[in-house]
Amino acid sequence: MIAIVDYKAGNLTSVQLAFSAIGREAVVTSDISAITSADRVVFPGVGAAGSAMRHLTDLGLLPAIRAVAANGTPFLGICLGTQILLNHSDEDNGVETLGIIRGNTQKFKPSDPWQKVPQIGWNRIRIEKKHPLLDNIEDGSEFYFVHSYYPAPDNFGSVLCTTDYADISFASMLGCGNVAATQFHPEKSGRIGLRLLENFTRWNP
């Protein structure tokens, strides 16, 4: 069973619909035992880091997230879910986040005012490191992004893909053992996004 963690951080229906489009059932849940006993865990989210951490705390989900990330369960972070895997976010005047991947989350500060924030739309990924989730996905493929902040991991070894925006090249996909995490939205990235999710359902880290 695939568990999609529900921590009141926005739109989870589209993630569930994407799995059903590839013939895989996924449940949206905030039940601790459902999450810890799942075969695979998806940790999505949109919105702000501060309220996300508050909801995770209030729902008592922090230990469960840490446990599945540590015990080898295939784990996929998406967007805000990815950002809060790092140690710290600059959002909401600074928030301590999960610290599952070392690094922090920073805000885009483009020198060109025409580079709008949030970045909304399709942008290219540069594959920095081979990974099972990127099987049959070409370097330069386009995925859908919606975000004002980006992950900045300490260790370049955890960077699977980078993407250029607002004067920088940021980590658009991270991977660390059984944890993989995308800044883009595979569930909204058409056929190529479904391919990544399909790879995730077959991944045995």
Binding site: S14, A18, A21, E187, G190, L194
Partner: peptide
């Protein structure tokens, strides 16, 4: 519509 497409809506 949401069920039938996998792009932003």
């Amino acid at each position: 519509i949401a069920k039938s497409i996998r792009i932003p809506f």
